[in-house]
């Protein structure tokens, strides 16, 4: 799909102003950009999380398309039910829409961790829906606790940086690759800064038959202790440093590096990404110099591994 500004201006906004997401949160732009990729009637299922809570504070909703929230760990299952319910009613001749797209949205906690079983099950069953994770690297909604998406060295309220610990020590789950291992037709990583790449990929995700997965990188000024104005810059830096490379995985094994990542002559140092955030501040003390180096080595190694998978020398 070609992404024209003219079309974007005409496109209806699926989420209104007046929501209570923090100033500078990248999740609303992610939803807006996702909205540009929609192709017709759409139903959104939202796992418990910042986005769900802050956009639907009763008695008001920011959503302009049908939307449902049930619980934290089950959004993929809820979406399964909607897809199959509609399919059944369609086959029985009592559903008025020819096609409705179903999108499940979860945060990293709801996707990498508590909702992973439900996600994996839905992927295996092959329902035709898109799952998007907006990954802000921790349980930000409950007060910045570590998740499976938290980066090594990241300080959270359950992985403090202290005299003995550098924040979280463990690596981040490679969720896109784990999901792709289900051999689903389409997986892609996106970020809001590279919005054209995002829209194109999301549209592809909608168009494939069967489940598709979008991993959207979502800077969080509150949790990351970054300036609210820097969220798009951080998204861009995450791509440029290899923290969140942009790529697609077709049918589970065909890896394609996307232009914004492919065009990088070399990665920027992870330090540049970390320096803009209070949550990594402690890593710049001499005590954690080695640890920081290890994080860089891990990011570089992952990048090289990805390049190899994408057939880039």
């Amino acid at each position: 799909m070609s992404v024209k500004l003219k079309d974007m201006i005409q496109s209806p906004q699926i989420m209104s102003s007046g929501h209570r997401m923090c100033a500078g949160c990248a999740a609303p732009p992610i939803i807006k950009i996702m909205g540009f990729a929609l192709r017709g009637p759409t139903i959104i299922c939202n796992a418990t999380g910042c986005l769900e809570v802050a956009t639907t504070i009763y008695p008001q909703t920011a959503w302009r398309i049908p939307w449902i929230h049930v619980a934290f760990e089950n959004v993929a299952a809820v979406a399964s039910g909607i897809v199959e319910g509609i399919n059944a009613m369609k086959e029985k001749g009592r559903y008025k829409h020819e096609h409705v797209d179903v999108i499940a949205i979860g945060g990293d906690g709801g996707t990498f961790d508590i909702g992973f079983g439900s996600l994996s099950g839905a992927l295996e069953r092959g329902h035709d829906f898109v799952y998007m994770v907006y990954d802000n690297g921790a349980y930000q909604n409950t007060g910045i606790q570590r998740s499976g998406a938290t980066l090594p060295g990241q300080e959270t309220t359950t992985s403090w940086a202290g005299k003995a610990e550098p924040g979280k020590r463990e690596r981040k789950k490679p969720i896109a690759e784990i999901v792709a291992a289900h051999r689903i037709p389409y997986v892609a990583t996106v970020d809001p800064f590279h919005y054209r790449d995002f829209i194109t990929k999301f549209r592809k995700a909608l168009e494939v038959e069967g489940p598709a997965f979008i991993h959207a990188f979502s800077p969080c000024p509150r949790g990351w202790r970054s300036e609210s104005s820097k969220s798009m810059e951080l998204a861009k830096l995450a791509v440029e440093t290899g923290i969140h490379p942009l790529y697609e995985i077709i049918n589970g094994d065909e890896y394609i590096m996307s232009a914004p990542s492919k065009n990088l002559t070399e990665l920027k140092p992870v330090d540049e990404y970390m320096k803009l955030q209070g949550q990594f501040k402690h890593l710049f003390s001499p005590q954690w110099e080695d640890f920081r180096k290890q994080v860089q080595e891990q990011v570089t190694a992952d990048w090289e591994r990805l390049k190899k998978k994408c057939g880039i020398a």
């Binding site: 449902i68 049930v70 299952a77 809820v78 039910g81 909607i82 199959e84 079983g117 439900s118």
Partner: peptide, 22 residues
């Protein structure tokens, strides 16, 4: 028939389908 991966998902899928009008 949705052969879900857990009872939690069984009820969750029912909720989704019921909310869609099924």
């Amino acid at each position: 028939v949705i052969p879900v991966e857990s009872e939690h998902s069984a009820m969750s899928a029912c909720i989704g389908a019921s909310a869609a009008g099924a």
